[in-house]
Simulated assay, not measured.
Amino acid sequence: MIRERFVSFIVVAVLGLPGMAHTGTITTPQIVAQTTSAALSCMRWMPIGACFWLHCSWHGCSVRTSIKVGHYNPDLVVSTYNELGGNPWAEIRAILGLAQKTAANGLLGALLPVPIDSAGNRTEGTSARDHKNLVYRETDVIGHPLSTLSGIVAGVGLLCPSQTTSFFPYFQSGLDALSWRQEVPEIFYPASLIPGLREVGTWPLQTWGGVYPRTGWTTQPEEPKAAALNAQRAGDIVTRTGQPHVYVPVTGSSGSMKVWPPGPLMEKDRTTGTWQMLLPKPESTCNVFGTNDLASLTGWGGGRVDPEGDYAWNLWRPYKCCQRRGQWFLFSIDWMSYPP
């Protein structure tokens, strides 16, 4: 109930905002348009099997069937940016930016040695001997504008409802400042200490960096890759429960349908989720991070650098579902594996 009321407030506020457009900004209509343009390549809808239901009435019981489908949903919009409260998603920045900054500058600001309101993309230390590739970025994970719509359309039985709620903030790094900035307790995880574990790319020859520690600090000379690492880390957090961060895990009920939701996001594994860049370079295809670009003259980041340091992606995740045709679900059969 609280989530629904929050989303209603966000929707009303979004509709009441004036149009905003400048470098480093993306709006809700633009996100919807870019998502729609990528639907054919990213959604990957296909019938994959059948479900069997037991339907009982006063006249007796019978077994009914429904088609089982699989497809990807645009669950989340993940944004990485420099300034606290400066989410490039214009409507989210206008509504949640000030609240995030105020909360982070309160108790958390008094506890942290690094100024909360200092600019992102900072290097480590101040002397010439410090590592200039170690930079910090804020990251937000917000429910996609179309995710709730998928639940409404799912009633026809050909689309699966998303686990996410539109415009709902699942993760805001400003509210998770102790872990996202100070790396506690992430720095003590084995994957943070042992090179080669949970790498985005192929270690040691070609790697963008490690998923752990899941913080805002990255050691990556190419800014788009550093931003992608932040997005992967935030997606890793919200698709799991019980993580040592301030966040809301992505969970949800299937409503009237039988749904097999996606599992936790894993790097380089498109069967757990794929990314579609929204900003600064709108793309109509989806892929995973970690592309081997050693043979490329410009690298993966070529043409993807934003002068404002703002980046945004759609996270598409795979679902399987079938329409309810009886009171009790019996079993399902798959004539092909999904995701393919």
Rank of each mutant, 00 (worst) to 15 (best):
A227T: 00
G174K: 00
P262H: 15
T164Y: 02
L229T: 11
L229G: 04
W203C: 03
V238S: 00
G255H: 09
H245G: 06
T272N: 05
D236W: 06
R198E: 14
Y189S: 05
A177H: 05
G273H: 01
P264M: 14
W260Q: 02
Q182H: 09
S254I: 06
S162D: 06
Y170L: 12
G255I: 11
P224D: 03
M266I: 11
W180M: 06
G263L: 10
G255M: 12
N230S: 13
E183C: 10
G242R: 06
F188H: 08
L178K: 08
G174R: 00
W203I: 04
S173C: 15
S192L: 07
L205C: 06
S179T: 14
K225Q: 15
Y189R: 13
S253F: 10
P262D: 07
I187S: 13
G216W: 01
I194V: 12
G273Q: 01
G255W: 09
V250H: 00
G273R: 00
E199R: 08
Y212G: 01
Q232A: 14
G273S: 05
G216L: 03
Y212A: 13
Y189G: 01
P262Q: 09
G210F: 00
L178T: 08
F171K: 00
A228G: 08
P249W: 04
T271I: 06
S179N: 15
L197M: 14
V211R: 01
G263F: 06
I237A: 01
T164H: 02
G273T: 02
S253E: 14
P169S: 14
H245S: 14
R181Y: 10
P185C: 15
T272A: 06
P261E: 05
E186C: 15
L193M: 10
Q182A: 08
A228C: 09
R198K: 10
S192P: 07
P261N: 10
L197V: 13
Q163M: 11
R181S: 14
P249C: 15
S173P: 09
T274S: 11
R181D: 11
A226R: 01
T219P: 00
K225T: 05
G235Q: 02
Q220C: 13
Q172S: 08
V248H: 03
S162F: 03
A228E: 04
P195L: 11
T241S: 12
P262Y: 10
I187F: 08
T202E: 12
V248Q: 02
T202Q: 11
L193C: 13
W217K: 03
R198V: 07
V184L: 15
D236L: 02
K225M: 14
E183R: 13
S179C: 10
A234Q: 03
G273I: 01
G273L: 01
L265S: 02
T241Y: 08
G263N: 12
R214D: 05
F167T: 02
Q243M: 13
S173I: 07
Q232I: 11
Q206A: 15
S192N: 09
D269M: 14
V184N: 10
V211D: 02
T207L: 05
G242L: 10
I187T: 13
T239E: 01
P190Q: 11
C160V: 09
R214H: 09
S179P: 05
D236I: 00
Q243S: 06
W203D: 03
T272V: 11
L197P: 03
